[in-house]
Design a protein around this nucleic acid. Sequence first.
DNA 1: TAGATATTTAGAAAATTGTCTAAATATCTA
DNA 2: TAGATATTTAGACAATTTTCTAAATATCTA
Lengths: 95, 95
Amino acid sequence: MNLPFKALADPTRRKIIMLLKERDLTAGEIAEHFNMTKPSISHHLSILKQADLVSDERKGQNIYYSLNTTVFQELINWFFEIIDYNEGVKNNEDK
Amino acid sequence: MNLPFKALADPTRRKIIMLLKERDLTAGEIAEHFNMTKPSISHHLSILKQADLVSDERKGQNIYYSLNTTVFQELINWFFEIIDYNEGVKNNEDK
DNA sequence: TAGATATTTAGAAAATTGTCTAAATATCTA
DNA sequence: TAGATATTTAGACAATTTTCTAAATATCTA
């Protein structure tokens, strides 16, 4: 649960997530949306990947990035626990 | 939305939130749960407060901290948008 | 195979963050 | 009012993060 929270702390990375919500994109297409070098975007993508928030797949010269919704589900569960929407949803404490 | 995400990026602060989920606590009580000085905990509390995730109220010598669920609700909405659990929860565009 | 395109890796500099000690502020009580 | 307790503020320092440029890797195509 630590890596996803760290990954979401950066506004650039949250914007990347919003872009990927619409459709899968190549690293280059993602970079076009930012005023930042491609290596920097590549680094952000790497952090999102380590956190398992996105996954990548090479197709020829391009690498396509896409959202990985499972970890987002886990994060939602974490928040539900906080506001006590839980107690029955699952059964896991702490974490 | 930036301050809450930043605030949640630190494990100490997430643990504080988990403690406050159970009941309101004084700064000193919170500090007892950590292997860290009181000024450090005070600093973490300040960041949580700036993000509006917690609120504080002085009662005599003590300052009690408590969870502020509204921002957590907003965060949950943000996550719902990501996994498309939305479309009707807020604005119902086409579809 | 050479050159073009897409992307990542490496390494460094600057900015931000987390933690500490020392000192300040606020409140209570004798 | 003086001393004790609870907490924060200030300032410094180390660790982490963000960003850059330069170079490396991977793939395609002529």
